[in-house]
Amino acid sequence: MAEATLLKPKRESFWRSRVWKRFRRNPLAIVGASIVLFFMLVAIFAPALTADRLGRNCLRDLGVSRTEAVKVLRNPLNPKFWQATLHPPPSCYKIPRKGYSPIPKPPSKKYPLGISGGGYDILYGLVWGSRSAFYVGILVISVALLIGIVIGGLTGYLGGWVDNTLMRFTDAVYAFPGLVLVMVAVTIFGRSLTVIMLAIAIVSWPTYARMLRGNILKVKAQDFVDAARALGAPPLRIFFKHVLPNSIGPLIILASLDIGSIVLSVAALSFLGLGPEVGFADWGQMVNFARRWIVGPPGEPLKYWYTWVWPGLAIALFVLGWNLLGDAVRDALDPRS
C-alpha cells in the first residue's frame, strides 16, 4: 500500500527538506543506513579484505602471485587493486576450500570465523557473499521494476481494453506459483546466478506493475491534474510531466528497499538444492552448508554454532538494515506524520 506523495512537491534542496530532517532524527533510520553502508563497504573492498586468503584460480586470473597478493591488492595505487575491486574474475566468487573434510572446524587465527563443512572458509564466503547479495538484489529489483514500470505505466495511462488485457496478463503471472516457476527455470537453464536472478525478477514484477497502476490512478484523480487538464495541457504531456513522476518516485524508493529480501529467496532456493553452484560465495548457500550442523554431537549441542550463526547473522543484518531504512524512508516521505 504505497504512500504516494499526493501533493506535487515544491522544488527545494534535499538537504534542507523536511523529509531529510525527519529521516535524520530517526535513530532506527541511522542504524539501518549504517548497516547497509557497512555491507556496501565490505562488498566493495572484498578483494582487499580477503587478499590474504584468495583462491588459486582467483589469483591466477588476476595475474597476482600469492606472496605479493596482500601488498598489491591492498594498495589503491596499484592498478591490480582497481581491477580486483571493479571487475574481479568470476573465479574469485568461488570460496577456496581448506581441505575436503565434511566436518566443520572451529575459528582459528587464520580462519577467524571458522571453516564450514566441506572446508569452506566462512569469512571468505561472508565477505564475497555480500557482493553477490548486492549484485542479485540490485539486478533483480531493476529488472522487475523495469518490466513493472512499462506494464503498469501502459495500463495506467491508456486504460480501457489495454488496461484490461495487460492486467489479466499481470494476474496470470501473479497467479503463478512463483517458487515453482523459478525452480523449473533454474532446472532447465542451469544454476547460474543470472538465471536465478532473471527467474526471480520475472515472477516478482507484477507487484510493482500493480502498485504503479494504483499510484497512477490515485494521482490522476488529484486536483492538480484536473487543473492542468483544465488549462488545456495535452494528455501525453500531463502524463509524463505530472502523473508519471509523482507515481514512479515513491515506487522506485519502495522497490529498492526490497533488495534485502531477495537474499531470502536465494536462500530458499539453496535449501531446495537449486541455489547458485556449490562453492559459490552466497549466504543462503552457506546457511545451507550448515543445515546438518545445527545440532552438535551428544553432550555438545552447540559445538558447530559458527557454521550457521555467522551466515545467518549476515542475512538477518542485511535484511534488517534494508528494512529499517525502508521503514524510515516511508515514514519520512509520509507528509502526515
Partner: peptide, 14 residues
C-alpha cells in the same frame, strides 16, 4: 548419509 555425520552427531547417543 555419511561417516562424518555418524561420527560427529550419532556416536555416543544413548
Amino acid at each position: 548419509n555419511d561417516w562424518a555425520t555418524l561420527e560427529s552427531q550419532i556416536r555416543g547417543l544413548p
